[in-house]
Amino acid sequence: MGLQKIKLQRKFKEHFIEITLLAIAVTSVMVMLLIFYFLIHESLKAFIELGAIPLLTGAKWHPAGDIYGLLPLIANSLIITIIALFINILVGLPLAIFLAELAGPRSKAVLKPAIELLAGVPSIVYGFLGIIILVSYLQDTFDMLTGRSILAGSILLGIMFVPYMTTICEDALRAVPGEFKEGSLALGANRWQTIRHVTIPAASSGITAAVILNIGSIIGETMAVLLVVGNVARIPSPIFNIFTQGATFTSVIAGEMGEVPRASMHYHVLFAVGFVLLIIVSILSIVADLTRERIRKKFGGY
């Protein structure tokens, strides 16, 4: 009798733990759904009262006059993301190739953790450095009205995410099986030809995933951009004028949310901006995830 009871108790306990763990595991899904729910809930009023299309395509952002159009934010974010990504790839990819293919084992042992460490520098610190060093440098050098500009934001974001870019790309390059490279070298190709025509194509989906993830991080980065971009939401004129102030999705939310009264139209519109941002970033995350899944299938155990 006693034994049976213990057995039953044990079974119950096991079952209870499994259910608890399942509930915990589903929490992350729930959190994601909750985030979506609250952002939709708070931004619904803006979409309904202003109309989704006029809100998204309005060319003027002027909260004081209750005029809200997201086009300036979209344009600015797009320009900043493109330039930042360009800088990011230009600096990060050569560094990754250097670490994966050219560096000796000893320098690699020092450099790789150092770069991983640098990925942790908080964005507010980058913002601080940006405002003290970069902004004043740009202002003096290019004789700008103010150094806080789209250019400053792009440069800062580009540099900030170099460690991420380098780390992920290096892992992708290193995941390419050695046989591929050895085969190419044995056929008489030199090292650069091997990297260019064998290693990089084989690692391309990993590099693509890195780029997509970095686009998401660049669009979503807040504090550094908030401090250096100037926070004037208008479409730059001419459109390639990167030496003027701008405002991105994130900088508008972070810069204006502190001052708006709750439940005003401005408040709801800022949530709408957040919702648009969330949609963009979620799509990017899912695409990156699918890309990585494809690599796993392609290379099997690597």
């Binding site: 992350s28 899904v29 959190v31 994601m32 909750l34 985030i35 609250f38 952002l39 708070e42 993830l213 998401g216 991080s217 669009i219 979503g220 980065e221 807040t222 994130t250 939310i253 972070a254 949310m257 800022l270 949530f271 957040g274 941002l277 969330l278 970033v281 979620s282 990017l284 995350s285 899912i286 990156a288 995830d289």
Partner: peptide
Amino acid sequence: AVSCLNGVPSVVFGLF
């Protein structure tokens, strides 16, 4: 869900 959560910008968490 986790990789989405990983990508959610910090400012959106602030809004949430």
